[in-house]
């Protein structure tokens, strides 16, 4: 159920589960559509771009090996209404991140899992 989301990065694809009957997107993945209760759900490739809904710059070292500061953000995905991903904004200074910025997915591989992180488009 979650595999498509975490492994799509191998093909550079961001995949989100979608109801094949009523077209509503489902995230986090569930075996049933929250809108029409259909079990006919399947992963689809989405654009991989979006907008920063909100964010925070984390300064606390929750673990000794954690490098701070870093940006945690909620990204609203283009073409995927109702789905927001918690992720990290990478590739720029934490000071340069703001609400409303346009971002694009970039994958970070950890063994067979590809984390969808985001970087600024502009």
């Amino acid at each position: 159920m979650n595999r498509d989301f975490w492994t799509g990065g191998a093909e550079n694809e961001l995949r989100i589960l979608r109801c094949q009957d009523c077209a509503v997107f489902i995230h986090p993945p569930r075996p049933v559509c929250r809108n029409c209760l259909s079990e006919n759900v399947a992963a689809e490739v989405v654009a991989g771009t979006g907008t920063i809904d909100t964010y925070t710059v984390n300064y606390q070292k929750w673990r000794p090996d954690l490098e701070v500061p870093f940006v945690i953000a909620r990204v609203a995905l283009d073409g995927v209404p109702g789905v927001i991903l918690t992720t990290n904004i990478v590739g720029c200074s934490a000071d340069d991140v703001d609400v409303g910025q346009r971002v694009r997915v970039t994958f970070e591989q950890h063994d067979d899992v590809y984390l969808p992180l985001f970087e600024r488009l502009d």
Partner: peptide
């Protein structure tokens, strides 16, 4: 639900609340 947060080091409730608070500051 933590599988959607832990990989991004967003495991503290302070991080979750902070994002709502940030939206209040911006909006």
């Amino acid at each position: 639900y933590s599988q959607w947060l832990a990989p991004f080091h967003a495991m503290s409730a302070s991080n979750w609340v902070a994002q709502y608070a940030m939206r209040h500051t911006k909006q």
